[in-house]
Design a protein around this nucleic acid. Structure first.
Lengths: 205, 205
DNA sequence: TGACGATTTAATCATTTGATTAAAATAGTT
DNA sequence: AACTATTTTAATCAAATGATTAAATCGTCA
């Protein structure tokens, strides 16, 4: 009964607070966000945060876990789809990541900063290593380069070329004198460029 | 007279506090560092921080300014050295940056995070835009690609491939199962790889 | 309706934290 | 040694902040 009432409101207050927490934590990071910021963003009283989530840290852990899942969502499927060529995989990753990051531009810097601040919180979560190091893409890279080079370099290159512009966007705005519109078409262009670049890089080995 | 005494101790207390501030701010970021952390790291009483630097924020501004200078130091010279070929420039940038970041691994994530948190603090400082957009390297990229593509892409690529591993190192340690030793030789390898990659990427246009 | 549980709020607490102050220690000068 | 200015410390303040509590409100069902 109590559960029922609670379940019905899952789409309202509790969810709204979590949503607000996502926004504020990603915008300002754990240390710089005040629980009052989240309450204000959600439009509720401060005490509700503790009522629903016990503490700032517990709420943060939930946001972090969901953010990491968001960061990986859809990637594992691409990496291990044996029907796709190497370049097709890279295209799909570049496109999916660019779209996802365009919708969530704060996500990568948030994850990288908070993992650095608290590396142990990543360990308990998903097994990144297995997903990537045993992936079909990994084998394809080995094949393409004739094992002359550690495939991890190309994993890094794909991620770097795709994700870094979002991590560095405040800097790029200044360096490149880009307004948000320009930045948008820049990363849009890179969807098609990155697969070409990666392919030519692979051929160099 | 007063100035003299002060000047002599510039290499002791005041400098030690600033040094400690560099360490702690870069390790934890502005919001997460306590002034007491800095005092402890320096081995002095908390009040000395305010005695020498007035406030946490003033001290931070100094650290930030010096960090940005460190981040740019030596680069402008390379970018505009007309005696160097494009690939030579890329090699020098990759080498210098890798060495500098190996010695200061916290630097890039610190700068990117804090600039995102406080974009206006960058504006008053050096004129990034001019340094890069009017550089000799910029012209060389235009020449190499026959103006078929915005050179900013290659500026981004060079920085991405060089800097991103350091920004993502906590993640890479988990994904790639790299210990610090492995990470070291990985970025060391990339010093030579990145110029080759950039060259082949340019030829693709 | 009214009673009960769930939800929400206002008020308050205890701790943390940036900053200040007054006094102590130190060093240099005469 | 005595005086002075500088440096350093211990103690304390005031504001911010995460958390709690008690009361008010709301919704549901008998």
């Amino acid at each position: 009964m109590a559960k029922n009432v609670r379940a019905e409101s899952d789409t309202s207050t509790e969810e709204k607070i979590k949503k607000a927490a996502h926004v504020v934590f990603k915008r300002k990071g754990f240390a710089a966000t005040r629980t009052r910021d989240i309450a204000d963003e959600a439009g509720f009283n401060l005490a509700l945060l503790n009522y629903y989530f016990r503490s700032k840290e517990k709420l943060f852990d939930i946001v972090m876990k969901e953010s990491i899942q968001q960061f990986l969502k859809g990637i594992a499927g691409i990496l291990n789809n044996t029907a796709l060529s190497l370049t097709e995989k890279v295209s799909l990753v570049a496109e999916n990541y660019t779209d996802m990051l365009s919708a969530n531009p704060d996500l990568p810097l948030f994850i990288l900063s908070e993992i650095k601040a608290n590396p142990e919180k990543l360990a308990l979560d998903l097994n990144f290593k297995e997903i990537i190091m045993r992936s079909h893409l990994f084998e394809q890279i080995q094949e393409a380069t004739g094992k002359t080079i550690n495939p991890i370099h190309f994993i890094i290159n794909i991620i770097s070329l795709t994700v870094f512009p979002f991590v560095a966007s405040p800097l790029l705005r200044v360096i490149g004198d880009l307004n948000p519109q320009d930045f948008n078409s820049l990363v849009e262009d890179r969807k098609k460029l990155i697969p070409v670049w990666i392919e030519t890089m692979l051929k160099a080995h």
